[in-house]
Nucleic acid binder design. Structure first.
Lengths: 245, 245
DNA sequence: CATAACAGTTATGAGGCGTAACTTTTCTTA
DNA sequence: TAAGAAAAGTTACGCCTCATAACTGTTATG
């Protein structure tokens, strides 16, 4: 309550900066260990050791393992979303097929290059992790979806969107699509059929990415996987009616 | 080296039967605990407690946690494969669309009803689990694939297989498909295009199942998810040229 | 410069994994 | 059927991890 208490908003104290840096270092070290050990079961002790600290020191920054896990999940969300956006934006706006492929490849490579992190977001919760079953978990699907939705809207605006592969839509789904289409996206030209196609496309894409990230396609040489993935993207693009690469 | 040592092959001693039963009980208890806690990180101690034993007793049956995990994975494989076969066989052979849908639904419900077990097979390895990166992991894809292949061959034999959605096949993939088609399946009428379509269909199907099993579709009501899944199967059936349900 | 906030340490307890040594039960067989 | 081998299960133990408590040093701030 001192009169000079007007510094909480815009004052990155030196103290606070070094603290933030330490937090970053902890998270980075944790990710390194996760990648090294190939498991998502991080050990506070190991992190501290790698940083030249003792374990209890970490409790100054994270209340427990679960909190650290939660932070890692949140970061992964942001990282993935940013990666997808960057990839999509790296291709000329009128090259719709190229934009789709770029975003899909980014998704794929992000997952394959960091399977544990991918599992952290899209897999089952881990031991100490207080599964926020309605929080970031569903947000993952939504963010990835919104990226895809952007592509669909762009394609529709360009007048190049073809009809989706499946035109039968149940009443119940149409009702949901009507709600979602208006609240989540512009809604310009979004029909239940297209919304359904988008969900199917996104799920189908996810399947390839998940299988490959977890090693179930390792019986194919990488070059062959690459080609197959392009075919996969072509196929799933057709489901929504997007321009295939 | 006693003369009466001619009983090792066909002699399920009472000893051995009760031992086998105990092993089954351990695995069953482990699965129960996995489902209860929602994590795949089983605790030997907890299993023993639930069985009214002390922890070291379990080491008579499994060398360590990893070995138990491995056994659970193997069992899950067999269970899933059997479930799929049963489901497919439960529909009249001439109802090709029905057979496809039945197998897909079986896959889906198996995963959604037992997400941890699903993750055990298709997710990342767990702490104590000595990742057999070339063993059961790849076998998972193969078994699920062979079930799908059976459907494709049936459809082709019935003369109802339509051309796959994507007909562009890279040379490298065609070469691989040529090898696989002959070694793994009868090869009757299997072209690289169809083989590619099968892989894409299977991956696409897996995507929906994985997302739903891990709760990423929980923002939809179950009934809506049901309808969407049917649409999904219709779409992915078209990729290979199968008869849609 | 005094003092409050913070970072980090050692000490400690609870609990899990896995091994060793011992006891009890069960089967085999002479 | 009685003796002994084999297997099942127990207690005791060492090591490691998580997490908390109590203490020491350091840094910013009046």
């Amino acid at each position: 309550m001192t009169p000079a208490a007007a510094t909480p908003p815009a004052a990155p104290n030196r103290r606070e900066r070094v603290r933030a840096a330490t937090i970053e270092e902890i998270k980075r070290t944790a990710l390194d260990l996760i990648r090294e050990t190939g498991t998502v079961d991080i050990q506070f002790t190991a992190i501290a050791r790698a940083m030249g600290l003792t374990a209890p020191a970490l409790y100054r920054y994270f209340a427990d393992r679960g909190e650290l896990l939660t932070a890692l999940v949140a970061d992964s969300f942001n990282d993935l979303a940013a990666t997808l956006d960057t990839a999509r934006a790296s291709v000329a706006p009128d090259d719709l097929g190229g934009r789709l492929l770029a975003a899909c490849q980014a998704y794929r490579h992000w997952a394959a290059g960091d399977p544990e992190r991918f599992a952290l977001i899209f897999g089952v919760p881990v031991p100490g992790y207080t599964a926020p079953h309605e929080g970031p978990t569903t947000e993952a699907a939504h963010r990835a979806m919104s990226n895809l939705a952007g592509l669909v809207l762009d394609t529709a605006r360009a007048g190049r969107l073809r009809p989706p592969a499946v035109t039968q839509v149940s009443e119940q789904f149409a009702e949901l699509a009507g709600r979602k289409a208006h609240t989540e996206m512009g809604g310009g030209g979004m029909t239940p059929e297209i919304y359904q196609g988008m969900l199917v496309t996104w799920a189908a894409l996810h399947g390839f990415v998940a299988l490959e990230a977890h090693g179930h396609f390792h019986w194919m040489e990488p070059a062959v996987r690459d080609e197959l993935f392009v075919a996969h993207v072509r196929a799933v693009a057709g489901i929504t009616g997007l321009v295939a690469p």
